[in-house]
Amino acid sequence: MTQQYDNMFRPATRTARLNAIEQALRAHVITSQAQLAAILAQQGIDVTQATLSRDLDEIHAAKSRLADGTMAYMLPDHDPNMHPEDLVDEKEEQHMARVLSGLVTSVARANNLIVIHTSSGAAQYVASVIDRQITQEVLGTIAGDDTVLVICATDAIAQEKTDWLVNID
């Protein structure tokens, strides 16, 4: 059985649920398990409090104090003093630029698709870095040994991402 939300179908599996939890924690300031369960329910994922508690423990999410004093669930790789929307724009983009600048050898675009050529063996890593972005602009990636296919939501987004990739230093 699958669940659909925002043009995306999510299989009703544990792995898909854990991924949805990680995405929710990266995209929202979540202060309680009830709030997280409500966000998941909007995506068609019904989860008990006990399961949610185990899932949070498994992905090593813990409550951290934000700059404004609020206690919120955060993943271990997030700075608790930054808001989730800032993470995409600044921290993630800087991290991506550092990683990709040494691995990307060429970039080409066709409509909403971007083809990224990398050093041999680096495509899987480059794809995983791109997949970790908190955005609905990039629908997903497919990676081989030295080539990554990035599927963007629109042609304009693909052009924007291509321009960024070409100009990273």
Rank of each mutant, 00 (worst) to 15 (best):
G144L: 08
L139N: 12
I157Q: 13
V29R: 11
I142D: 10
A156S: 12
V115H: 06
A27S: 15
A62R: 15
E90G: 10
A153N: 10
A72N: 05
M71D: 11
A72Q: 01
I39M: 06
T154P: 03
N111S: 15
L18T: 09
D6G: 10
N111F: 05
Q3Y: 07
Q159K: 13
Q23V: 06
A156T: 13
H28C: 11
R17Y: 01
Q33R: 13
T162E: 12
Q94D: 15
I39W: 03
V115G: 08
L100S: 01
V138E: 03
Q4L: 10
A108E: 14
E93A: 09
Q94M: 10
T31M: 10
I130M: 13
L87E: 03
S119L: 15
A158N: 04
Q4A: 07
Q33H: 04
D55A: 06
H83M: 11
V166P: 04
V138M: 12
A156I: 07
T70L: 05
T15S: 15
V47W: 01
A16P: 00
Y125C: 00
E160G: 02
I130R: 08
E58F: 00
M8F: 14
S120D: 14
V99N: 04
Q133Y: 06
D89L: 11
Q4K: 12
I134W: 09
A20T: 02
V104N: 04
A72C: 03
